[in-house]
Amino acid sequence: MTDRPAKRMRDMFLQGVLEEMNAATDIFFVTADFGSPVLDNIREQHPDRFLNVGIAEQNLINISTGLALEGFRVFAYAIAPFITMRCLEQTRTNLCVLASVKPLSVCLVGVGAGMSYDVSGPTHQALEDISIMRSLPNMAVFSPADAECSHDLAKHVSRRKGASYVRLDGKALPPIYQANERLDWNKGFNVLRKGTSASLVSTGYMTHKAMETADILTKKNKRISVVDVYSLNHLNAVAFADCIKDAGPVITLEEGFTGRGGLDCLIMNAIKGRTITALGLLPEYRFDIGNRDDLLKLHGLDANTIAEKVLQTAVH
């Protein structure tokens, strides 16, 4: 891989937001009392466009809506399960419904994708957020795999019209992309490795697991494709189907519930007619204590177990 240091997505994303706020006066940053070191720079440098609504996600969305109606571009920031679920009806009504008739630019930024808040337990883990946010019309859903591309994502969403949800991992992760790599966010996916034995299609942290799995299987003479899917509501399905057509059986990997409208559903619809194997979490709430990789192992989502499952479906 690389010897570049692990970084947090939120730091790079917020750095991108800060740069945009430095360059334009029409961007507001609103938080539900959730912070980070880079956020301190935003609130120190732009106190007039920074608002902390307190631990009040419903008001976070409503205040952001009002600012957007007055022509401001808004970033709303909170912990992933709370910004997607505590205030879902505010988001649906005031962002998604309203965006059908009024120009709005609001980006919801949730930190703590999947089980990144490992020891905090089920309240703080976001295992349903992709399914829930994907179900909303007028809502883009972005799920970056590392901090490097998160910087570019901040630039992309700040220029994007409409409502969007960005799910950021809570942990520092090693880089997958080059420093400040620019991705095609409208296409929605990127082929990290090409192979014909099987295709691992993943999002967020699971893209790291997919790469690990591909490394294991390479040693077993398998050629594994790894496709990082980072735009979960606006995937270019034609391009995706084309890139995956000769790449063997498709296995989706997500750190969320399977069979509930998440990545597996997205890919199933994108490559209609092909069978996929969906790996992820069973739809149940558990109180296992341990670090993230301990927890993933309990769900059979460690690289070795994934590799075994891939071998069951892989060709040549």
Partner: peptide, 19 residues
Amino acid sequence: TVNGSLGHGLGVGCGMACG
């Protein structure tokens, strides 16, 4: 704004006021 789903107007209005 979108109305009738109750309890949204005051918060949205406060956001407008900040804007």
